[in-house]
Design a protein around this nucleic acid. Structure first.
Lengths: 207, 207
DNA sequence: AATCTATTTAACAATATTGTTTAACCACAC
DNA sequence: GTGTGGTTAAACAATATTGTTAAATAGATT
């Protein structure tokens, strides 16, 4: 018996289907077919489509939340280097999970109730991080290492630069393919550029 | 008789519904109800759901394509000022059409065929713009007014910063509300910040 | 051997959704 | 007045989709 195997197959097929087509666009029959199991088995394991979706969704929300923690490398490196590494880690995470942000936001849009459930959680988690991050920024600014800046703005800048590419990938690829040629070249170029943008943003005015 | 009025009512209701829920999530009955007309009328005017969707979609793709042209202000202003105005115009356009990018990309993801139809169109239109823009950038760099930069990178930087906020608005709002308080304050802050990021990116190294 | 679980096949029920048809109504134009 | 086109209402057909059920099989567990 490959019990957990079948369950995993269904979950993986469901993940692919939900990510591509959203909740409404995904069909349980199509998921079952993609998973190589019968329609009956899908309901046997998950009873309802909603149930199956929630399993996938919770897992993905947790992943997305985790992705922000990539910014919090509290090493002994310089602040600038820490920020650089944080952005690169975030970018690499998105490379491995390219349609995660679109999936999560789409479900929130079509079902706003979902956001309410963890609205406060978000505010608290990021609030704590931002407060600490702001202190680091201010201290570095006091030492003249960086330009003075609002931590929230810096965070949004970095996340915007990184996430946009993956959310709009097909369009971005269509626009950039004549220049970069390959997908890999595009990713490499943007990974570098995003870091540069933030570093220039932080570069202090020379005296 | 309010013939054109009914048709417009349907189109507007369809737009709202398609933008919120996507093609699969939108229901013709729900659209008809929202438009205040009968189920029959919707089919009388548009025959099929697909038909109605295409009307909305084509209109939105045209809008999105048009939005890039906001960057091309060929005035006699300095390059830096032209870029600043272009970004602001783009941001304001997105403020007025906040879910346009998500709508267009979602449909492309769930129906990749759509992209093929205007893949070359995109490449050509942006290609022409980028070539001209790159010349302007190079000349300004020669004069020492800005840092030398790839036009495509600059375009992606600006568009990323602007578009991300609107695509992820509910999440961004949840994160930033404790800091900015209101939606308007958030928008104003990001509008300014996005321009700043690009201007710092362009700031030449002092000699 | 008896039992339990995973599995397939097949048929079925319930509902939602898209799309059509018909009959009737009303206003306006000719 | 007659006809035309927009409109409603109601019923209907066709299909898709979700979900359930029953019967049979086979491996593993007891």
């Amino acid at each position: 018996m490959e019990s957990s195997n079948t369950e995993q197959n269904i979950l993986q097929a469901a993940e692919r289907e939900f990510l591509d087509k959203g909740f409404a666009g995904a069909k349980t029959t199509s998921i079952a077919a993609a998973a190589g199991v019968t329609h009956t088995m899908l309901h046997y394991y998950f009873r309802t489509k909603e149930n199956l979706f929630n399993k996938v969704y919770e897992q993905k929300v947790a992943l997305l939340a985790h992705s922000v923690s990539g910014f919090m490398l509290d090493s002994k490196l310089s602040l600038r280097l820490r920020i650089q590494r944080g952005i690169e880690a975030h970018f690499d995470f998105l490379s491995a999970n390219p349609d995660l942000p679109r999936f999560v936001i789409n479900e929130i849009i079509s079902n706003p109730q979902r956001l309410q459930n963890f609205r406060e959680t978000i505010a608290m988690a990021t609030g704590a991080f931002l407060q600490h991050f702001q202190e680091d920024l201010d201290e570095a600014a006091d030492r003249g290492e960086i330009r003075r800046i609002c931590a929230l703005n810096l965070l949004l800048d970095a996340v915007s630069l990184n996430v946009f590419l993956f959310i709009m990938f097909p369009i971005a690829e269509a626009v950039t393919l004549p220049v970069y040629g390959t997908r890999e070249a595009l990713l490499a170029a943007r990974r570098t550029e995003n870091v540069q943008v933030i570093l220039y943003r932080l570069l202090p005015n020379l005296p």
